[in-house]
């Protein structure tokens, strides 16, 4: 399960970043060298980058690189630190779930209004689906982390050595 998820994330990050890079570079070359271009290049670039970034955010949740302020919890005794960590991860999970739900409601609304992207001629609900789907990914990542936090093997990041 974890392996499959990682593979999916890897694929989406690579497609998103390298796809956006290709589209953006091609747009500049087309405009400058061939004096032509695509109207949809900007929306494609933005959509692919946001996809890559939000999937990257999910990976960041798995790897624990989202910035936290640990000044207070670090000073707690080890067993209490465990509870604080578990609480923090649970809150992050609750938030991801709520955002997945809120974004899903918005996608549903867009689907209902039939709004179409003016530049790309595709329904905007498809583009916006990135939001609930990546929030679902975030949620899975936090679900995976909670047992670790509970067991206490979730420690503050290793200090950088001078």
């Amino acid at each position: 399960m974890d392996k499959l998820l990682t593979k999916i994330e890897d694929a989406l990050m690579l497609i998103g970043m390298l796809g956006a890079l290709t589209v953006g570079t091609a747009q500049v070359v087309m405009r400058y060298v061939f004096n032509t271009g695509f109207v949809w290049s900007e929306i494609a670039l933005v959509t692919l980058t946001i996809l890559a970034a939000l999937v990257g955010g999910s990976r960041a949740a798995a790897e624990g690189i989202h910035i936290r302020i640990t000044v207070l919890t670090e000073r707690l005794p080890a067993p209490v630190q465990r509870y604080a960590n578990t609480l923090a991860m649970t809150i992050a999970l609750a938030y991801s779930l709520f955002m997945a739900y809120a974004a899903f409601l918005y996608v549903q609304f867009l689907h209902m209004t039939g709004m179409v992207s003016v530049e790309a001629h595709i329904p905007t609900w498809i583009i916006f689906s990135i939001a609930p789907l990546t929030m679902a990914l975030f949620s899975i990542r936090y679900i995976q982390r909670i047992p670790h936090a509970w067991r206490g093997d979730e420690v503050a990041k290793v200090e950088f050595i001078d």
Binding site: G37, V39, V118
Partner: peptide, 24 residues
């Protein structure tokens, strides 16, 4: 090289006239 707002009325006009249209 002309920038127009996104929208077919703008884009198609200048494409028809042979411009290099962008909607940045």
């Amino acid at each position: 090289k002309i920038r127009v707002p996104p929208g077919r009325n703008y884009v198609d006009t200048f494409k028809l006239l042979g411009a290099n249209v962008t909607t940045m």
